[in-house]
Amino acid sequence: MSRRRLRKEPFNLIISGVGGQGNVLLSAFVGAALLNEGFMVSVADTFGVSQRGGSVTSHIKISKKTLYSSVTLDGKADVILGMEPVETLRALGEFGNPHVVVIVNPRPIYPSGGATYPDLDKVKRAITKLSSKTKFVNATEEALKMGNPIYTNIILLGSLVGANVLPITKETMMPILKERFPGKLLEENIKAFGKGMELIAKA
């Protein structure tokens, strides 16, 4: 059993985004870190067709004593990591509550087929209204600066860990990154992770 404190039992983390953004990898990293910290975790991702550009949500339930079902109960999210703004809002609508902490990448991904995307500022306002503890992290922008949008999710991972809302630290995360990324990739990803921590500290 973990020595670390868990703020609530169970503690619910939601990662919301769009298929293709790499949320499965993110949830796997977080899950692995929590396991290494001695927690009981269940991680549920969206699989199959929805991964093709649909909205995807990963639910991570963390406990010190038992394994819960994987899906978050309505209105019971403790942290929402939003990889995309309207998807963050969607998750808040279902799982939000006055205490939820939100970390969000404000870069929109437009739905296909001409569905209109609401005004971004309006979305941001709606998010902050539903969570007074909202932090915006320009992850895609930073990733593009690094030369590849692929780093977006690792930057967000850095921000999530840096926000100190989960019982995991940079030290728990490092071996997991090392196991996953070979050689040169590791360096870049550690840089991305660091960038994420930096951004959240400033946010």
């Binding site: 649909g54 209105g75 309207v86 569905a115 209109t116 995307y117 609401p118 709606a126 539903l130």
Partner: peptide, 21 residues
């Protein structure tokens, strides 16, 4: 009250139909 607000807020959320990559 939060529940009401949340339900109102997501009215602006567009559908995100699945798509080919």
């Amino acid at each position: 009250t939060y529940d009401e607000e949340a339900k109102k807020a997501i009215q602006i959320v567009p559908d995100r139909p699945i798509n080919m990559c």
